[in-house]
Design a protein around this nucleic acid. Structure first.
Lengths: 336, 336
DNA sequence: TTGAAAGCGCTAACAC
DNA sequence: GTGTTAGCGCTTTCAA
């Protein structure tokens, strides 16, 4: 592969002139410029970004660590992030941690070794060591989808989202509600549940412990919804802390011949595309993925270019999307 | 950040010894080794992979270009690939081309500039210039999910998959069938349709032009399924060339009060997770994503490490997954 | 075993 | 404007 030296020789100029021509910071005469360009074309010369990075001490790369790219919520976030990063001239190093704390740690260190200019992380679990590692490095790190104490982080207002879910159900007249809680140890899920229960409590409704099921954030948890419908006095509405769980519940309920929303209202969180496609489509608390991604990349880029202070972050407002899976409690009139 | 030079000074040894210790190819005395290790710990030294790459002329990075990470089929493929690459000591540069030929081209060149050891590509459309660019570079490139003439490529046996779909429908007694064809210009889709129509033809069934709808590979195409059901003699079974399209059709049919599979059988291709979750679950021709990913990474790694010849590739067998969305044609007996 | 030194491909002072 | 040069952090030959 041709180097700058080869180009200089072919064009009959000095190495420095080629560099100047390429970087445009120091001007070169039109005559030399065209000679250089011709040599570049002839040799098919391409700058070596690695060598350039070594000198400039800037790699123009960003690392992205997330738990599972097959989760459509993370995939969409990754898409948005890659786009804005690319538009800003950065390449994305993609790391799928597979919900594995050790792997995640190794990926983080690897990113540091590669001198990534910054790292975006959606950590895998509360046992993650990344918040700790982030506080020990000088590399810019932004946490996404979870709020991390003392570290820059960008997340939805999960508490508010939880409240929105509860308020929607209350307005529809539901007073006996259940919940499916996936990955309850993760702070964002806790915030959703706090918002949900507090809003219920304010209207005198309590979420009874036997009406709450805990588990991993997956379809299997949703399918356990039957444990709720088999209760003596089954709930008339169910809140799932994320759409995947809600979809698992949807599937099980339909299979059991249960009508949604006539027999039971179902409400999710995230606004994954698939929820829209169900029949009936899933009512959900939508996270603004574009805003999440935009804020995260902007914050990260500011962090290492403008030397912004660490510890700042952004909270993105969620939005209730009322679709077909929730309706007024049976027997309830139209009056509030 | 500490450099090797700093470590050498702190340990009281030469720069070379530190390098030797780190790389383990030249042995150092136990005494020096422990001094060096101590210095490394004290300084929190981490090797600079960029500098190492410049010397070794190997970056241990692979580029992955795909049209849209939000497509669950590509997401799953990306997941599998990132995993095997990581296990082999490679980092993945992720590029989402957004189905944009110009963008895809820029990403490819960028990967070349970064001296990625290899590039894995699922190109965006038949107008893609990547097959051409790949033939002009010495960097290892493997095409995925599409067969490219004269270039190493890994794909499913789409022709066979198309045949499987047709044979399944024929065995169920369907003789009046329709098809929803997404992205018809892409070779893999053409192969699916060729297999499908040929297998039908062998049993004397023809796929009439008015029973075939063309469009982009998305939900909207699926929703146009009503154009088929409104025909005077509507098809009793429909083949969608991929699951996303099939899901769009599923949704529309259910909405219209059409019963699946009693009124109409529906068959997809890919085996996206969501298909399994519908009620009834979608019968589909499954692509073996793990095998696709494993073959692709293995081929790519061989290409630049073992200097294998270009032009080789792999074909992965698909598998018919009979689920609830297809059934025997109404009025047909159990006999074949 | 150890260390000195050349150099990977590039940038950016610096002097002309 | 142009060329020369030091050096980014590392690997690797080569002598000692």
């Amino acid at each position: 592969m041709a180097t700058m030296k080869d180009v200089a020789k072919a064009a009959g100029v000095s190495l420095g002139s080629v560099s100047h021509y390429l970087n445009g910071r120091v001007s070169v005469s039109p005559a030399k410029a065209s000679q250089i360009q011709r040599a570049i074309n002839e040799l098919g010369y391409r700058v070596d970004q690695g060598a350039r990075s070594l000198r400039r001490k800037q790699t123009q790369t960003i690392g992205l660590i997330l738990p599972n790219i097959s989760n459509p919520f993370y995939a969409e976030l990754a898409r948005v992030i890659e786009h804005s990063l690319w538009d800003e001239g950065f390449q994305t190093f993609f790391c799928d941690s597979a919900h594995d704390v050790a792997r995640e740690r190794a990926q983080f260190m690897n990113l540091l070794d590669r001198r990534a200019d910054g790292i975006l992380v959606i950590y895998s679990s509360e046992r993650s060591v990344l918040p700790q590692l982030a506080s020990e490095t000088t590399t810019a790190v932004v946490f996404l989808d979870r709020s991390v104490e003392g570290q820059p982080s960008v997340a939805s207002d999960n508490y508010l989202g939880g409240r929105m879910a509860a308020e929607h159900l209350l307005e529809l007249g539901h007073t006996c509600v259940g919940a499916l809680v996936g990955d309850a140890e993760i702070t964002n899920i806790q915030e959703r549940m706090t918002g949900f229960t507090e809003a219920l409590a304010e209207r005198g409704v309590t979420l009874e412990p036997e009406y709450v099921l805990y588990g991993a954030q997956d379809l299997a948890l949703g399918e356990r919804v039957v444990e709720l419908t088999h209760l003596l006095s089954p709930p008339t509405a169910i809140f799932a802390t994320n759409d995947i769980v809600a979809i698992g519940a949807w599937r099980k309920l339909i299979e059991q011949g249960c009508r949604i929303p006539e027999d039971i209202s179902l409400l999710g969180f995230d606004n994954v595309e698939m929820g829209r496609l169900l029949v009936p489509p899933l009512t959900t608390v939508a996270q603004d993925i574009s805003a999440l991604g935009a804020h995260a990349t902007e914050l990260l880029l500011n962090l290492f270019s403008n030397q912004l202070t660490k510890g700042r972050g952004a909270i993105v407002a969620p939005q209730l999307l009322v679709r077909g899976s929730t309706t007024r409690k049976r027997g309830e009139g139209e009056s509030m």
